[in-house]
């Protein structure tokens, strides 16, 4: 079976310091990323700020072109530097961003936000678009009453539901989630993670889940890919990587993650009392 997503030696360079007189300096944000992802699976891309995980997410979502290398969606090579993204390609991949306050147009009603993808990519009639948007609102746990409201009337969690609904309007097979729960409160984070799990079951979605939070990744991912300064340092199934991290950086990352279990609290308090 063709994989839902494949990248071959994808790189991305940025010019920085290219001022009027200054000499050009090139930053290699991605240094040759190879990955394949099976349909219906969740790949978590983990790393700290500046490791290139969001750059990779944007390339997969066909927002930015790679500097070199190949991107294949459902086995079809895609080169947005040469050809404009077609409606068919767009329908396969959609993205949800981290900040639900920035990713919704403040001057657009929820209904318009949700129907815009259909308006631009399908011949669906106005009534049909409206029906599908209403249906999607309910799928993501909102109500048709929310259709005519503006984004600022919603809480962060509800906005993220709207952003997810918009991403699903075109029935994509691959959803790129760029830190979708990092800006949310803990209790809301749980609701959104549940929603994502439900939607994955219902539509057979493939997820690329970018995150810095290992506890979230451990909960949602099938495979984990750890990135460090534009390179993949470790890419293995979730259980394997959490049970036995191989690379030094992965070990550092795991060790730095706070532990909220009773045993480690007890150990800490005992060490403190002894010290």
């Amino acid at each position: 079976m063709t994989p839902a997503l494949e990248t071959r030696a994808v790189t991305r360079d940025y010019d920085v310091g290219a001022t009027f007189f200054g000499k050009r300096r090139v930053v290699h944000a991605l240094k040759g990323i190879d990955l394949t992802l099976e349909r219906g699976k969740t790949l978590a891309i983990v790393g700290e700020s500046g490791c290139g995980k969001s750059t990779l997410a944007r390339i997969i979502a066909m927002i930015d072109p790679p500097t070199s290398g190949e991107l294949l969606i459902d086995g079809e090579p895609i080169d947005i530097a040469k050809h404009r993204v077609t409606s068919d390609q767009r329908r396969k991949v959609q993205i949800v961003f981290q900040n639900p306050y920035g990713s919704l147009n403040p001057r657009q009603k929820v209904g318009d936000i949700l129907t815009e993808p259909l308006l631009l990519n399908t011949p669906a009639s106005a009534a049909e678009r409206r029906d599908r948007a209403m249906g999607m609102l309910q799928k993501v746990g909102l109500t048709p009453a929310h259709y005519n409201r503006y984004p600022h009337m919603f809480s962060g969690g509800q906005r993220q539901r709207i952003a997810i609904a918009r991403a699903l309007m075109l029935n994509p097979s691959l959803l790129v989630l760029d830190e979708p729960v990092s800006a949310l409160d803990l209790s809301v984070q749980a609701q959104i993670l549940n929603l994502l799990a439900d939607l994955q079951d219902e539509f057979g979605l493939t997820y690329v889940f970018v995150s810095h939070d290992l506890s979230v990744v451990r909960y949602i991912a099938d495979e984990v890919m750890v990135m460090y300064f534009g390179e993949v340092v470790e890419h293995r199934p979730r259980d394997a990587i959490f049970a036995d991290p191989q690379h030094d950086y992965t070990k550092v990352l795991f060790a730095a993650t706070p532990r909220a279990d009773v045993a480690s609290i007890r150990a800490r308090l005992e060490a403190k009392a002894a010290g």
Binding site: A61, M62, I63, V85, S87, R90, Q94, I95, F97, N99, G102, S103, L104, N105, P106, R107, E116, P117, L120, N121, A163, R166, M169, L170
Partner: peptide, 25 residues
């Protein structure tokens, strides 16, 4: 802002991005 990128991802053209997405803001 990310809402502009989001509109691009769903396929808005340059003119639509300029006049419908960005200008009102």
């Amino acid at each position: 802002r990310e809402y502009v990128v989001s509109a691009r991802v769903v396929g808005a053209s340059h003119l639509r991005l300029m006049f419908v997405t960005i200008l009102p803001n």
